[in-house]
Structures are given as C-alpha cells and as structure tokens.
C-alpha cells in the first residue's frame, strides 16, 4: 500500500465514512437536497433545518463510496450552527482544499483535520467529484432558492 493512497483514506476519512451521528432524515426538515452522481450512482439525501437563516440541524441518508460518504458526513457536522451567509465561503474553502490546481497549501486554508484529510484528493482528481458531491449540491441550492 503506497503513501499516496494511505493519505487519501487516512483514518479521518474512514472514520467519518462510518460515523452515523448525522445519518438519517430530519422529521422537521425545512430543506431537503438530493446529491446524485449519475456516473457512479452515489446518492445522498441531505436534510436541513434552517431557522432564521441559521442551519440548526443537518443530516444525511444514502449510499456511496467512502469518500463521498465521509465528505457528506463532515459537511452535515460542520454546517450546523452556521448562517447561510457563512456557508458559501465555507464551501468555497472546501473546493479550494480539494482543487489540484490550487496554489494555496491545504494547511494555509484550514487547520481542521477532518477537512484537511480531503486535501489528499488533490492527488486523485478523478475522485474530486466524490469529495464535493454533497457540497456542490448545497452550493447550488444556496445560489438558487434557499437564499431568497
């Protein structure tokens, strides 16, 4: 097993992929997003409870590879408590983190280890879509109706 791949799947990602603390559907969801990658079939339903422009609760449900699952788990964990205004730069930061063309080092972007783990995806551009699947969907929703 080489270091590159170990880094990609380092314990943070494997642990988050198995973390069920934010799995499930919210009874009182105000917004439900469907993140789907038709190329591979990965599919997550992200439930959000947004009150006064603050994400109070976020959970997910669905199926996919370890990377998409871990990234969805991290997303739902980390957006809780954030305002809609804060979310957009946060997602942009995550995109920068996994962007293999970025000129910013991952460590200069964040010190959060759960997020930093995904920087290994820079070595695997074909897996970037897995890492950003749910994040992308949330960004699209923010640009669409959610902000209005």
């Amino acid at each position: 097993m080489n270091d590159r791949i170990k880094a990609l799947y380092q314990s943070h990602i494997l642990v988050n992929a198995k973390d069920t603390s934010h799995q499930g559907k919210l009874e009182d969801a105000t917004h439900v997003l469907e993140a789907y990658n038709p190329m591979c079939g990965d599919q997550y339903t992200v439930s959000l409870k947004i009150v006064d422009d603050v994400i109070e609760k976020a959970t997910f449900d669905g199926f996919g590879c370890a990377i998409s699952k871990a990234s969805t788990a991290v997303l739902t964990k980390q957006i809780e408590g954030k305002t809609l205004v804060e979310i957009k730069p946060f997602i942009e930061l995550f995109h920068e983190l996994v962007n293999e063309l970025s000129d910013q080092s991952p460590e200069s972007l964040t010190s959060d280890e759960d997020l930093l783990a995904f920087a290994a995806a820079r070595e695997f551009p074909e897996r970037k879509v897995c890492a950003t699947l749910s994040w992308e969907e949330l960004l699209l929703s923010l640009r669409g109706s959610m902000m209005k």
Partner: peptide
C-alpha cells in the same frame, strides 16, 4: 464500495 476498491487497485 466498488469505487474505493477501484481507486486502491489503480494504485
């Protein structure tokens, strides 16, 4: 998951 497997095998 099959995609994780295929990434590993590619290495």
């Amino acid at each position: 998951h099959a995609h994780d497997l295929s990434t590993f095998l590619n290495e």
